[in-house]
Each structure stands twice: as structure tokens, then as C-alpha cells.
Design a protein around this nucleic acid. Structure first.
Lengths: 203, 203
DNA sequence: TAATATACTGTATATACATTCAGTATAATT
DNA sequence: AATTATACTGAATGTATATACAGTATATTA
């Protein structure tokens, strides 16, 4: 965005205030009245300058055809999106972070830690589709039926959690094309990264 | 807020969409073009009715002097959640708003207008489950395969959109337990409230 | 039965508005 | 020294726009 002069900034502010106050943009005459100009051409030339510099759009031949070009919102501390790779643990290392999503920490009721981008359709019948973002809360407080992010040896997967016995865990997909994974904790290492407490889909 | 007729609701939606699209309110002629009216007075009378019922303000003698009384979505990045009721149009009237969700307007790429809480499982195979919140963008720019919020006569539903011929539209569920809805536009009134551009699930 | 609200078409018109042209003047570039 | 951007006044003009008026028609309310 190019430089802006003091007068042009006044005009830009004037437009913003006018829209906030009335709900629609000002005419040239409105701007003149607000800023004390005596000729509509004073507003006109400032508007042309603002358009040229990319701060506003002007719809030609249209009354009040001014629209603000909103600058990109400031990216505050958002939540990271982590890609779910077939092998490897989803770490918060920066190289694994696709981008960050700006939303309140309490977006899904209780707090969560990161978003995980889902690959595959193994949880299709639970309404979790390819490329969905599941909100993951890092916790070991897992109950039967929870959707968990589990790491078996080096492979990360999203499944329903079902404890059959103290040492036998079933990880169940929500898709008939996939089979249950039975894990004997005495033979195989299982680590629960966390559980899904919400979902976002960007179409 | 008083009752609103279907036609008046169309005009209200039209105004909102126009502002979203252009940044400034429509003229009478703009509304006529969008909704297929042939006389500017058609828009005029609807506007007067909407003003009388308190949905809009009209600044007399002013071009494009229409302002929305209830621009809920502008309030601090809060987007309203509207319940999907079997009968009736999802309006932004305050009594229909469950609560508001705080998230950036560009959360799903392009802008959207409100969240609709989904009832039933007719879009189950598209990963849309009961009580999910779909992000609805009010628009008439619909393409085959889009997930739309449609109103057939007085019933609101979420389905895939498929235009079979200029006057035949299929609304397809994503669930084998449900059947396609075939609509002949010459016999049945169909109004597209908007399309789904994203989804949020709160577990 | 009369009155009112809804839902339109169609014509007409005063004016609100965008936009161009003609100037004046100052400061910053090239 | 010439050009360009900024910062205005003032007048003129075509048209974009609001809005009234005249109809037609149906449904609802008092």
C-alpha cells in the first residue's frame, strides 16, 4: 500500500465514519460538507488519488459508489494447523505448521491446542472428511467413544477409542472399508496425542 | 420485530447481498434487476413495508439511502447461529439467533453471513452431521454440486444443488435413506437462501 | 361491505449526484 | 526549468435515482 497524504487520510477516515454512521457511503458533496470543502471537485480529486493508491474502489457512473478496500487483518496469535502425515508424530515444529487459524481459545467449548488436517476417509461416517481440520486437545483423559489422535509406533491416525480390557485397546474407524485396529499394550506402543473436540471444514 | 413476508424477505436478503458484494446499498432499479421486477415501484413498496416493520431505515431524498437496522454480523466479528427449523425462512431476526460465534469474517476463505444449525442426517455422506454449524454465504451464485440452503415454498433444507434443465432443479441429499427432490420451477417456488462454504462441529 | 395489506406494471419528473472543464496556487521531483 | 502531485474554488451538465401518480389484482381484516 502506497503512501497517503494527511488530507487523503482525512477523506478516507471521513468515508469510514460516514459508512459507520449511516450505513452507506458519502457523496462528493457529503465529503465536502464534512471536511469544509467548497467544491465537489475537491472531494473528487482526493477520491481519485485514493483509488489510484488502492485504498478505495469507485464504481463509475454510480451514486455513492465508493467501497473501502480493507487492508489484510493483523494476524494475531492463532492456532497452528498441522498436517497429518502417515508416518511421524504431529509435532508443533514450525516446519509442520501449514498456517495458523485465528479463533478464540474457547471456540469449541473447552480449550484445544492445535488443528490437525485429516487425510483419508477412515472417519467418514463420523462426518470427518478428507482435509477437514479437527481441533485437538492434548489430554490423556480419554473415554470410550472419544475420537482420538493416536500414535502407534510411528504412525499417526484418527480413530474412535475403545478400551476392551486393561491391556487391549481397539481403534475403530467410522468407515466399513476400513478395519478395527486391535492393540495389545504389552506388545505394541500406543501413545494418545489427544482427542478431537471439534471440527472445521473450509470449502 | 414484526412478521415478514417471503417477498419482503427476498428484498431484505437482496439488500444485504448487494452491500456485501459492492460495499454500498442498492437502488430501486438494482433490486428490480436482482429479483426480476419490472417496475421500480415494486421495490419501492417493499422497501416501505420493510421500513414500516423496522427492518431497514430509508433516508429520504437520498440515493442508495437504505441502511439495515439489524446488521448482526458487523458486531465485533460475531456471527449469528440460526436454527434450521422445518418451516419458515431463516431470518436474522433476533429471536431466531441462538448465540453468536466469534470468528474472523474470512474464516472460510471468502466471506459468509451466518451459521445454520443442521437438523437431521440427510447430508451425512457429505460429512454434515446433526447439530453441525454450516457457514452460509448469502448468494445467488450457485453452481451444480454446491451445497445450498434452499427454501421450497415454506420449508428450508440443506442439499446438493443440481440444475438438470433451465426449469428443473434437483436437490440431492447425501444419504441413501433420503430421496432426491425434483423441482419444476414453473410449478413450485424455489428460493436459494445461500450456499455452504464451511462447517464447524462442536463436540 | 369497506378497508387495508400485499404484490405487481408502467409512466413521469424533480433532483441528487458523478463527472468534466477551467482556473489558482504550492511543493516536490526530474 | 519543466513536470508532476497536491490542494483547492467555481460552474456546468448529463444522468442516475427517489418518488409520486395511475392502474390491476388478490387476500385478509374489521
Amino acid at each position: 500500500m502506497k503512501e497517503i497524504t494527511i488530507q487523503q487520510n482525512k477523506v478516507l477516515d471521513c468515508i469510514q465514519e460516514y459508512i459507520n454512521k449511516t450505513g452507506f457511503p458519502p457523496t462528493r458533496a457529503n465529503i465536502c460538507k464534512e471536511l469544509g470543502f467548497k467544491s465537489p471537485n475537491s472531494a473528487e480529486t482526493h477520491l481519485r488519488a485514493l483509488e489510484k493508491k488502492g485504498f478505495i474502489n469507485i464504481e463509475s457512473g454510480t451514486s455513492r459508489g465508493i467501497s473501502l478496500v480493507n487492508p489484510v487483518e493483523i494476524e494475531e496469535n492463532g492456532f497452528p494447523i498441522i498436517g497429518l502425515v502417515a508416518a511421524g508424530s504431529p509435532t508443533l515444529a514450525s516446519e509442520n505448521i501449514e498456517k495458523t487459524v485465528n479463533c478464540p481459545p474457547t471456540f469449541f467449548g473447552s480449550g484445544f491446542d492445535y488443528f490437525l488436517r485429516v487425510k483419508g476417509l477412515s472417519m467418514k461416517d463420523a462426518g470427518i472428511m478428507e482435509d477437514d481440520l479437527i481441533a485437538v486437545k492434548k489430554t490423556q483423559d480419554i473415554r470410550n467413544g472419544d475420537i482420538v489422535v493416536a500414535r502407534i509406533e510411528d504412525e499417526v491416525t484418527v480413530k474412535y477409542f475403545e478400551r476392551k480390557s486393561p491391556s487391549i485397546i481397539h481403534l475403530q474407524p467410522a468407515n466399513n472399508d476400513f478395519s478395527d485396529i486391535e492393540i495389545n499394550l504389552e506388545e505394541t506402543e500406543l501413545y494418545i496425542e489427544g482427542k478431537s473436540i471439534g471440527l472445521i471444514r473450509e470449502n
